[in-house]
Amino acid sequence: MSKKTTKQFDNMLEVRDLKTHFLTDAGIVKAVDGISFDLKQGETLGIVGESGCGKSVTNLSIMRLIPSPPGKIVGGEIFFEGQDILKLSESELRHIRGNMISMIFQDPMTSLNPFLKISTQMIETICIHQDISKKAALEKSIDMLNLVGIPDAKSRIHNYPHQFSGGMRQRVMIAMALSCEAKILIADEPTTALDVTIQAQILELIQKLSRQLNTSVIIITHDLGVVAGMCDNVCVMYAGKIVEKAKTEDLYAHPAHPYTFGLIQSVPRLDKAKNGRLFSIEGQPPNVIDLPPCCPFHPRCEKAMDVCRTQYPPTKNLGEHHEVSCWLYTDDQERSNG
């Protein structure tokens, strides 16, 4: 059980055409609608987008943690080290959850069980996946808490979650997530609920530990600043689809999709603060219920063309690992075909 596969794969994780839909009273919500991306060993991938664009659903789908009903993964494949997670049995899946892929959630206040001591929650995580005694697991938990920088870990481990501050709880979450030496760490907006000063510490911690343990990381965020500092590659999501995928430096230097451009522009910058207004993208992200076939961004796009209103653009490769879905990068032939 605890022996981890040593076979090396080029891509730790391959997501192919993943579709996750929610059945609601109002209609089918296509929260994730055909997205694909890869994650290499040791790589840090950022997924960026406004709230409601499907970032979190993507990652819950990878863990198959979509609450069902109403949610359902209706199509696609998710390969982890060559096996399709979506086809695994419940017990095989448990072997992956927490052990191979672990998650840090957005809100550390509610993600820890308030009725159980930290020690209980950490020890159980280790004992599920590793064949060691409770005492050894406790030792290891204390080590992990020390690693994430919890002072006086030896005695604090016997406290309940409500006796920790938000930042400390998120550290506990990270310690718990890394305690089984998972190969992939998914961090779902790990700093959104925290103070700005704590945010930087937590992100640094994730970065440091992932380097140390050679863990692949997926960071979900709406904060481009976080991405710039941490990620090797970035996916930009809009209305359930990935609109642009590139290396981080590339994306910042040459944003191709108008949405990406807008996002980057709207980050407040100290050096430009005095000479002008803040940039913002006008309008609201669309309601993803019963969306007609069109580019969902067209109402907010300054460069929208007629074809944008009737057809979703094809994905274009703009060079090394830089993909974009936008009609701007197609030729007339393609547009008229569309």
Binding site: P286, D290, P292, C294, P299
Partner: peptide, 14 residues
Amino acid sequence: KREQKAKATNEFNQ
């Protein structure tokens, strides 16, 4: 006014 309100659609014909 009510009728107008009921017919309001956005750019996606929603």
